[in-house]
Design a protein around this nucleic acid. Sequence first.
DNA 1: TGCAAAAATGCACTTAGTGTAAATATGTGC
DNA 2: GCACATATTTACACTAAGTGCATTTTTGCA
Lengths: 211, 211
Amino acid sequence: MPVTAPANTASRRELNKVATRRAIADAALALLRSKGAGNFTVEDIAAEAGVSRRTFFNYFTGVDAALASLADRFLDNVLEQFRLRPADEPVLESARAALMELADPMTAAPIAELFSLTNSSQGLGRCELEAWEHCTEQIIAAARERLGEAADELHLRAMAGSIIACGKAAMGVWFEERGADLSPESLAVFRQHLVTAVGLLASGFNAPATA
Amino acid sequence: MPVTAPANTASRRELNKVATRRAIADAALALLRSKGAGNFTVEDIAAEAGVSRRTFFNYFTGVDAALASLADRFLDNVLEQFRLRPADEPVLESARAALMELADPMTAAPIAELFSLTNSSQGLGRCELEAWEHCTEQIIAAARERLGEAADELHLRAMAGSIIACGKAAMGVWFEERGADLSPESLAVFRQHLVTAVGLLASGFNAPATA
DNA sequence: TGCAAAAATGCACTTAGTGTAAATATGTGC
DNA sequence: GCACATATTTACACTAAGTGCATTTTTGCA
């Protein structure tokens, strides 16, 4: 009868739920790969994951949410890097370092694939917008934690939003230039874009916007 | 037989389509007000607008898109202000001036109402995310137009995204502080937040984020 | 092993969204 | 004003999304 909060040692039930959630998300990705965006149904995902259609909806509100969870899984790497930075470092410098994680092959590959697969259908997929938004909120939370309760909410939000905007911009430009090319040279370009974008942000976009 | 592009003098057909589109969007807003988010169907909107359900889908992909078009209608005011700024002005200064339009009662009232109505259900409504995204794309286009083809795409995107992030942040903070209070004092606060946020952006977020 | 809680499932139902063909409205030449 | 071509709306049918509820299966624990 634990009146205290559930222990951080995950119970078997917790583990199973996480595993099921992952299985569903992975099934969605598999179908995205094999059939292309919009060419499979929730029922297909459920079958692929070995659960019932109803169970799918117990875990996700829809296909988009399932795919967004995949993006979240990797964008969370960025957040983790941010948290690992020394607390007395300027936030923008931490952000720059954390965004480098985007250009890590292990992170970039799934994100790039996911975005290229979902972008094929429309301008910018809903699931991406939500994934970036989710990441923004987490950066705000992490920055607030670092700066203490006295942190100015407006400052936090504007800064976090701008940082993510730089990440989005760098990824978007890289994407248009190189497709989903994940070669070391291509990733170096991506990394350079991230550095440039954050550098522009840190300088207040003072330089003229012409090459 | 006009092989040339359709004349800018709108034909009757064009006008009717615009009117129908508006009627549908307005009907959606009316239902959002009277029944609350999520408590009405596409069929309800179509009936309210006096068209068939199928016609609704000829104009919008869903309820979200219809509501987003309302947001777009007012966010376009921001873009218009941006375009009216002198071409030799620094882009950030133009952006600051344009964002002031958000705090104009005629613009703020519908936006604030729309966001408060849609926010009631979830963190940040899909339609809002899409509306901001749409606005960002337009700012990019306007800035590119101003700066010429030599404009650096990364610079443009990162800057436009950051500007919009500041607008989002100012509106979000104002919202949490004042609800949908549209009194002159409240709007003055909102305006101040916009100025502050863009000021932070222009300074590269150098000041510490504590009050 | 047996029992209570949690999770998964099956089923029924409403609504979203789309293809198609028929009906209606609009623009144009005469 | 009339007739014809084209654009738009509509009705209908269909697949799939999403949800509520009762039931079954699984899991944790004594």
